[in-house]
Amino acid sequence: MIFRQLFEPVSSTYTYLLGCEDTGQAVLVDPVINSIERDLEEVSKLGMTLAYTVDTHIHADHITSALELRNKAGSKIVTPAIERLDCTDLGIEEGVPFEVGSIRLDPMHTPGHTDGHFAYVFQDRIFTGDALLIEGCGRTDFQNGDAESLYRSVKEKLFALPDDYLVYPAHDYKQRRVSTIAQEKDRNERLNREITLEEFQSIMENLNLPYPKFIDYAVPGNKQCGICPTDLPDKLKEYCEQMSFSQQG
């Protein structure tokens, strides 16, 4: 198995590269548009062909590179079927494994951050998107988010996985790279094993977070599998431009 964790610093997004050594095919989970060249270079260095991109949800803080990668590399676009995106090549559903050679992702519908959010189990780890972050979780006040739904997604689905499963989130803002299910049960300030639904709802209602600065551009762009708007303000252009340097996890 080939596994790489890649970091995009503008939106603090983790992209995950999975490779099947038998078939030479690779999959990118949550790729970011301003890291296209880095990702393609990483795939090439491994002697692989990019077969698919897989997104956990319609992102509000960055533009996916799914469409551009399809144009450049011929990869197919995989998104949750519940989103019904016209640009999708394959819609993913809970209970239906997604397999590419020896790579197998088991999709898990985890609504709450967004209503169409999915996490993906891969061997002894899970890509949790924004549903479960390291000692945190995604916000629930946009894109049909719902605190009760997120609470149940985490407590009833993600926390039902084995304690030693590795948790790989879509973001981290403190340079942390991985957690475990057990650690999140113990240390997650919003969703540890002691937090009740009522306490979680109160926490999420009182976050007082600012309106996301990129959401009005990212959501429409990501509903088209990764279109950068032409009217993007100069102060936000770094979210769509190719970067000369991007940290790698």
Rank of each mutant, 00 (worst) to 15 (best):
A147L: 12
C228F: 10
F118G: 06
E94S: 12
Y52M: 05
I134N: 05
H62Q: 10
F118S: 03
E238L: 09
H113M: 12
L18I: 07
C20V: 08
V154E: 10
I126P: 08
R125N: 08
S246V: 04
I58C: 13
N144H: 14
C228L: 15
Y16A: 01
T23L: 10
Y120H: 09
D231T: 11
E8V: 06
F214V: 04
P210K: 02
I227T: 13
I103T: 00
N222D: 15
V178W: 03
T53C: 13
A51D: 10
F142W: 15
Y173P: 05
L207Q: 14
D115N: 13
K76E: 11
G136L: 06
Q224M: 14
C137N: 15
V29G: 02
E41N: 15
P107F: 01
Y217S: 04
A51C: 06
Q242G: 11
Y52P: 00
V219S: 03
C240Y: 05
V78C: 15
M243I: 02
N222E: 13
Q25Y: 07
K155W: 10
R193D: 14
D130P: 05
D146M: 05
P80C: 01
L17Q: 05
I134Q: 00
V100E: 01
V154Q: 04
L90I: 03
Y151L: 06
F214Q: 00
Q247L: 11
T114N: 07
T23S: 15
M243L: 15
C225A: 03
S35K: 00
L158A: 00
D216Y: 07
V54N: 04
P169N: 00
H59F: 10
A60Y: 07
M204I: 11
I126T: 04
R190Y: 14
T56Y: 12
Y173V: 05
E8A: 06
E41M: 09
S44N: 12
Q175H: 13
S244Y: 11
L158P: 04
L150R: 13
D22E: 12
E205N: 15
V10A: 08
G221F: 03
E199G: 08
L209S: 13
L166I: 15
V29K: 00
C240D: 10
F200G: 09
C240T: 10
A131W: 02
R152I: 10
Q242M: 10
V96A: 11
R104W: 05
T88D: 08
A182M: 02
I82Q: 11
C225S: 02
G95S: 05
L158S: 05
L166C: 08
A51R: 01
I215R: 11
F3Q: 12
M48Q: 14
Q123M: 10
S65G: 14
C225G: 03
N222W: 09
V54G: 04
T230H: 08
E37F: 08
E68L: 12
D164N: 15
S149R: 13
I33Q: 07
S149G: 08
L150Q: 13
R187A: 09
P111F: 01
S202M: 12
E135G: 07
Y14H: 15
T180H: 07
M1F: 09
K157P: 05
E135F: 01
V178A: 11
G226V: 07
V27P: 03
R152M: 06
K72S: 06
S12D: 14
G221E: 08
L90F: 09
V78R: 04
